[in-house]
Simulated scan of single mutants.
Amino acid sequence: MALQLMKLQVTASTTTNVDPESSKFFHVTGAETAAGTTLTIDAASFFLDDGTPATSLPPLATDNSYFTVTINGVLQMDGLSTYTPGATTVGSLAIAVPAGGDSILAGTPIVLEVVSFTPSASTTVET
């Protein structure tokens, strides 16, 4: 019998699922925030979709989550907001109001949306 290269015959398939979870937090400003200052909203100052008070802001998983801020129905640029996850007195959203621009008026609705993804994968190998 002649020499021959022996090799394995292998096939594999992977199924990947990415399940997003969105949390929305609502706030209505109580006072005007002037241009050139920062509006900081504590976790307890937000309320949830059902109107109940929020008690904490969820963590942001590296490369698997993001947050957006909407002020008076307008999506804001990323660089204006600083998000800190956590419970009351720790968790907060800070919005830097640019100098030379408009202030945020009292009674303005602010919506914080946090989106997190939970990826999962399964691989089947057949030989």
Rank of each mutant, 00 (worst) to 15 (best):
S23K: 12
T124L: 10
Q4L: 13
T37G: 10
A43K: 06
F117T: 04
P53G: 05
V90R: 12
M77N: 10
A54G: 03
N64I: 01
G91A: 07
P98A: 08
T68Q: 04
S65F: 09
P109Q: 05
I95R: 01
P85G: 12
L80P: 01
D49L: 10
G100P: 14
T16G: 03
F25Q: 02
D42A: 10
A96Y: 02
V97K: 11
F47G: 00
I104V: 13
S103E: 15
T52C: 05
P85F: 09
P53H: 00
E32T: 13
P58K: 05
M1V: 11
S65T: 09
V90G: 08
S103W: 06
I110T: 01
V10D: 11
D78S: 11
L3M: 15
P53L: 04
T40C: 11
T123G: 01
Q76P: 09
T52R: 14
E113R: 08
D63I: 05
D49I: 06
M77T: 04
D50E: 06
F46L: 02
S23I: 03
I104M: 09
G36A: 15
F67V: 03
T84N: 08
S65Y: 11
T37D: 15
L39F: 02
S92M: 13
V28N: 05
V10W: 04
A94H: 03
S122M: 10
G73C: 04
V74A: 06
L105K: 07
T89P: 08
V90L: 11
F67L: 02
I41F: 11
N17V: 08
P20K: 08
L75H: 03
T118K: 01
L93S: 07
T38P: 05
T118R: 00
T123H: 01
L80H: 00
D102A: 14
L75P: 00
T84M: 07
L48D: 07
T29A: 02
E113A: 14
P109H: 09
T38G: 05
G91R: 06
T15Y: 05
P98Y: 04
V18I: 12
Q4N: 14
S65Q: 10
S22G: 03
L80C: 00
T70A: 06
A121W: 06
A54R: 01
V97S: 10
T40R: 06
E126F: 10
V125Y: 04
V97N: 10
T14Q: 13
G100R: 09
G79Y: 03
T38Y: 04
I95V: 11
Q76H: 01
T89W: 12
D78M: 10
V74Y: 08
S81V: 02
G79N: 11
F26C: 01
L5K: 15
G51S: 05
V125T: 03
E113K: 07
K7W: 14
A2V: 13
A35W: 09
A96N: 13
V111Q: 03
G86W: 13
F47C: 00
T84A: 12
A99D: 12
V18Y: 05
